[in-house]
């Protein structure tokens, strides 16, 4: 019973962290169809923002929930303005340019901080289920994952801004004819996606080792989650996170963490062969 409880927490944690690292990409890639290979580096920048601001004496929660998303959001807006903007509709060029960008970010951070592992201390204690001990921070990640997905859903579905964003993505010319500047919408959407990614990086900072190259560990997972999810970004990302997260954690439990990652990647390849349009290409079709 206790074991079941602890496994449930771990699966929930894996699913939630997958959803977190994919949420920003779901906005940028899922909505805007921009392949952002610097996604992993946006996560990395969010994590380093937390390192810098906590070292400067700012409260951990403030730096994680406010400073990191804000900083990475601004970086995102700059990137959109100066690079991505010129490449809309040129998918492969975007892919290569953002890959270059990711190398650039890695280079900059390595130059500033060196190639050493930084760390942030987890601010929460632990709790017990029977004889097992689990960190409370994992519960917080689960909570945050659910919250982020819920907020994206509410904003897209019920707010005016969400309506404008969805409308522009569907038909930019029509949106422009109705007096909305698609360029602004693109910039803001990209910025929001980047900010969400920064938040995810910041939230995961206490549980991962921070290296300039840490982004590479996340990027493939984030992409396959969003692609595995398919067209509907909220339902897709959450269902794909649930599926891949469970596969990963169960295999990790039965075998080793590395084989868990391998199982996740293999599951993704098979899923895409069976459902080339992703999960929401077949199921939950009219969902958001």
């Amino acid at each position: 019973m206790d074991l079941a409880g602890i496994i449930a927490v771990q699966i929930g944690y894996t699913v939630a962290s997958l959803a977190l690292i994919s949420a920003g990409l779901a906005v940028i890639f899922g909505m805007m169809r921009v392949i952002n290979l610097a996604h992993g580096e946006f996560l990395m920048l969010g994590a380093y923002a937390v390192v810098v601001s906590t070292k400067a004496g700012i409260n951990f929660w403030v730096s994680m929930l406010v400073i990191a998303p804000l900083f990475v959001g601004i970086v995102g807006v700059i990137v959109e303005r100066f690079i991505v903007r010129f490449l809309y509709g040129r998918m492969m060029d975007t892919l290569i340019a953002t890959w270059g960008l990711s190398l650039l970010f890695i280079g900059v951070i390595t130059t500033i901080f060196g190639n050493a592992t930084e760390s942030v201390v987890s601010p929460l204690g632990s709790f017990e289920i029977g004889e097992f001990v689990e960190s409370q921070y994992r519960l917080f990640i689960i909570f945050l994952g659910v919250l982020v997905i819920a907020v994206i859903f509410v904003v897209l579905r019920y707010s005016r801004a969400g309506l404008i964003a969805r409308g522009t993505m569907q038909n930019a010319d029509m949106a422009a004819a109705l007096g909305i500047s698609p360029q602004h919408v693109y910039t803001i959407t990209f910025g929001v996606g980047a900010a969400l990614t920064g938040l995810a990086g910041a939230a995961l900072a206490p549980v991962t080792g921070l290296l300039p190259t840490m982004g590479a560990a996340f990027i493939a997972k984030a992409f396959i989650t969003v692609i595995g999810g398919g067209e509907a970004i909220v339902t897709g990302t959450s269902s794909a996170s649930a599926f891949f997260g469970t596969v990963n954690q169960v295999t990790t439990f039965l075998w080793t963490p590395v084989m868990g990652d391998v199982a996740l990647l293999i599951a993704a390849v098979i899923l895409l062969r069976l459902l080339p349009q992703g999960i929401t290409g077949r199921f939950f079709r009219r969902w958001l």
Partner: peptide
Amino acid sequence: TVDVNLILGVILVVFVLAVP
């Protein structure tokens, strides 16, 4: 003095934007 990744990254971005 300068990280290799940084320069490779710049080369890539510049080539995609300027010399596709």
